[in-house]
């Protein structure tokens, strides 16, 4: 069984899978668009402060 004038089942199948996997990405992105919308740690803040001090000294 082939589609779109292709030569064998294997390549016809991958054409379909390629479209389906892209649709999976699109649908997942749309469904989860506003989900999981969850904090710079104190250590990182301190690190950035030290960075600025070194930059200013130099």
């Amino acid at each position: 069984m082939t589609i779109l004038g292709l030569g064998d089942f294997n390549v016809s199948l991958v054409f379909i899978l390629l479209i389906l996997s892209t649709l999976l990405c699109v649908i997942y992105g749309l469904v989860k668009w506003n989900e999981d919308g969850d904090k710079i740690s104190g250590k990182e803040k301190q690190w950035d402060k030290e960075e600025k001090n070194i930059e200013e000294t130099l």
């Binding site: 996997s21 990405c25 699109v26 997942y28 992105g29 989860k32 668009w33 919308g37």
Partner: peptide
Amino acid sequence: SNREMNRAVLVGGIFTL
């Protein structure tokens, strides 16, 4: 956040295709 990751899946899928 992981919300940005969800949205990136949509963009990345179309871009790669």
